[in-house]
Design a protein around this nucleic acid. Structure first.
Lengths: 160, 160
DNA sequence: CAAATCTCAGCGGCACTGAAATTT
DNA sequence: CAAATTTCAGTGACGCTGAGATTT
């Protein structure tokens, strides 16, 4: 993706710039996951399970931002690889309770490092403080409230 | 898209934030174009034609960032609606020369306004200076060199 | 009964690939 | 001949919809 040479109209358009950088981001990230025969969505699921504990697929959908039907597919895959467990909820038999296990946590830790490195590659043209700024601006635009509880649940990723 | 409630891992990940905001951006922008029975890609083509003049489809592909095969499809559409003209290049008969006409320019002007308004909606949570910052950071991350020739080719869009 | 949950089949937009046809 | 250009058919990932089955 070479943005120089593109029309001025586009080069000034936030939505266009977002789209272009997102293309590069998807490429970089997908490559990381492909090396593990995994998918972006599965990282989101593992992250939600690690942070919020065992939960229904509906809850997973809400927390991960994935569609309910995609949650079904990706949990299938994760369960088949023994990275998560899926069991009917005895308290409400409409639900499946999904939980991450030790192998899932190990994989998540390994992925954190590689994904962090990919972020650095993606934003190589920016300084550290610029990367921080970009993250804050994106979060604010999304209506993200400061992740309360000043104590971070997860250790700082290495791209910071 | 509600980003609060998402895992901390994701909320700190530039590529994830990019993806989430890009989803909203696509939704906002597509709605604008749908009202004109148009497509995002066609705006990019019109913008390239307006700024750089008549050119081959290969050149259009490079300038607009669209794939060569998609250029074929969208130029088909634009030509069918008499917004651009497509004629074989007498100097090199492998090429088609595509050019924008008066109707295309009028449409482009109208779109500029509506797209500008959509950008404002997308970034409503940001102040003006934050929006400017975001655009600059995205551009820098993409390796965009300052659009040289301090004189802008296009009038400032109203979302600035 | 209405509402929630899970599951499955499939759709539409989109970036992209491969190959054929033509011309330089 | 190799390389460039246009065109077309098709693919795969992705976000999403609709509907059915089950349970509360």
């Amino acid at each position: 993706v070479d943005v120089n040479g593109a029309p001025t109209r586009l080069r000034r358009l936030p939505s266009w710039l977002l789209g272009q950088l997102n293309v590069e981001a998807r490429r970089a990230i997908s490559a990381v996951f492909a090396a593990h025969d995994l998918h972006r969505s599965q990282y989101a699921l593992l992250a939600a399970l690690e942070q919020f504990g065992p939960q229904s697929q509906a809850a997973l959908s809400q927390r991960s931002g994935l569609d309910r039907s995609d949650v079904v597919r990706w949990v299938d895959e994760l369960a088949g690889r023994r990275l998560v467990a899926r069991a009917p909820d005895p308290a409400d038999r409409r639900r499946n309770v999904v939980s991450i296990n030790a192998a899932g946590r190990r994989l998540l830790d390994r992925l954190d490092l590689e994904i962090g490195a990919a972020q650095e590659r993606l934003l190589a043209a920016l300084s550290r403080s610029e990367r921080r700024q970009l993250v804050q601006l994106l979060a604010k635009a999304l209506g993200s409230e400061p992740s309360d509880g000043a104590a971070p649940v997860v250790a700082d990723l290495n791209w910071r």
